[in-house]
């Protein structure tokens, strides 16, 4: 990788992005937001007109593209063992700053330490990330609470900044520049591109104005046995909406699907909100009730992960705020913790 600073990379203005989308879609490698029943989703797209860059955050995060809900690790039959081919290349267009910020967190889990996840890393490696600066935060968005912003685009190969009715496109890596070389558009002076980027970086988010993280991890150090957990867990449905739509949740289970002499080992998402998550073979369950499970999820995100990696395991994407049918989302819990510290 060459060491060009982002500011020195190429930037162009695209009045009309459709020709670019058409070219990408024709290449068969494009994954982008499309409209689906009740919202948006990242899907592999063959026709450019399906791409919806006017989307708001997808119901599911794009983590599935790197850490699929079900992934065959190997299969076997009488003839031997077969390991699936590593994933092919893809261009993920339209990833938002919040989801982009979730990837380095997943990288730590799957890509650091003695056990590295080859499937995950291969998909990360082979994905070109074309981020879009966020021009439509929802009422539930609070990435700014985590020091991020609608203009936080670190880690993207290329960024689309919605600007003046079109897009200002800026490469951030060599891969981004390579992709951009095929794109039309008039070159933009570095200073102009930086001004647009800075404008997005200084944008606020609706819920971000309200959710304050100061002292939350520290306060939680002493709150394992706090009665607050009992109160807030009372309404939990024990469903997996929050964990499955979350861009940073990454728990999984392994399952063997066998029939006769053939079978496969599959890795599937799991959720700490399910009672079976910690149920042991003998029937004992160390997290027997909703209180223990709800506490685990939020302690992990707001305390354990911080202690281990010095970062919160949340990017403020607002999906749990939108989707939790009973309002037991992380913003609510952060405020509840702040409420406890304020009273103390």
């Amino acid at each position: 990788m060459n060491a060009l600073a982002v500011e020195e990379r190429k930037a162009v203005r695209l009045a009309d992005i459709r020709p670019v989308l058409e070219r990408l879609a024709a290449g068969g490698k494009l994954v982008a937001p499309v409209a689906e029943a009740g919202g948006f989703a990242f899907r592999r797209v063959g026709q450019a007109e399906k791409v919806r860059l006017d989307f708001y955050n997808t119901a599911e995060s794009p983590k599935d593209l790197f850490f699929p809900q079900s992934e065959v690790l190997f299969s076997y039959d009488a003839a031997g063992i077969a390991v699936p081919e590593p994933a092919g290349e893809q261009v993920l267009l339209g990833i938002r700053p919040c989801d982009l910020a979730a990837l380095p967190l997943l990288d730590r889990v799957f890509g650091e330490g003695p056990f590295r996840d080859p499937g995950y890393l291969a998909r990360r490696e082979r994905t070109v990330l074309v981020a879009v600066a966020c021009d439509r935060p929802r009422a539930s968005c609070f990435c700014t609470s985590f020091g991020l912003s609608p203009g936080h685009v670190a880690g993207a190969d290329m960024v689309l900044y919605p600007d003046e009715g079109g897009y200002l496109v800026r490469a951030q890596t060599e891969a981004g520049e390579a992709l951009m070389a095929e794109w039309p558009g008039e070159a933009v002076a570095p200073g102009e591109a930086e001004a647009v980027a800075a404008r997005y970086r200084s944008m606020e988010t609706p819920l971000g104005r309200r959710i304050r993280l100061e002292g939350v991890a520290e306060a939680l150090d002493g709150m394992f046995d706090h009665p607050m957990w009992e109160q807030i867990a009372a309404r939990c449905l024990s469903c997996g909406i929050c964990t499955y739509t979350c861009p940073t949740c990454h728990c999984f289970q392994l399952t063997d699907e066998a029939k006769g002499e053939a079978g496969k080992r599959v890795r599937c998402w799991d959720s700490c909100m399910f009672p079976e998550f910690t149920r042991m073979a003998g029937g004992h369950n160390p997290r027997p009730d909703k209180k223990a499970r709800v506490r685990q999820r939020f302690m992990h995100k707001l305390n354990y992960f911080v202690r281990r990696w010095e970062e919160y395991l949340c990017v403020g994407c607002g999906r749990c705020v939108e989707s939790c049918p009973v309002g037991l989302d992380i913003a609510y819990v952060i405020e509840a913790v702040q409420g406890v510290t304020a009273r103390a």
Binding site: E36, A37, A41, E60, Q69, L237, S238, C239, G240, I241, Y244, T245, S271, F274, P275, E276, P325
Partner: peptide, 27 residues
């Protein structure tokens, strides 16, 4: 097509007053 979107979060089962078995075949 409809079912392909299902993420198996089990919220439909968990919220349902008729799904009140003490243990569920899905678990």
């Amino acid at each position: 097509e409809q079912f392909s979107r299902c993420i198996r979060c089990m919220a439909c089962r968990n919220v349902c007053p008729a799904c009140n078995c003490r243990s569920c075949c899905f678990d």
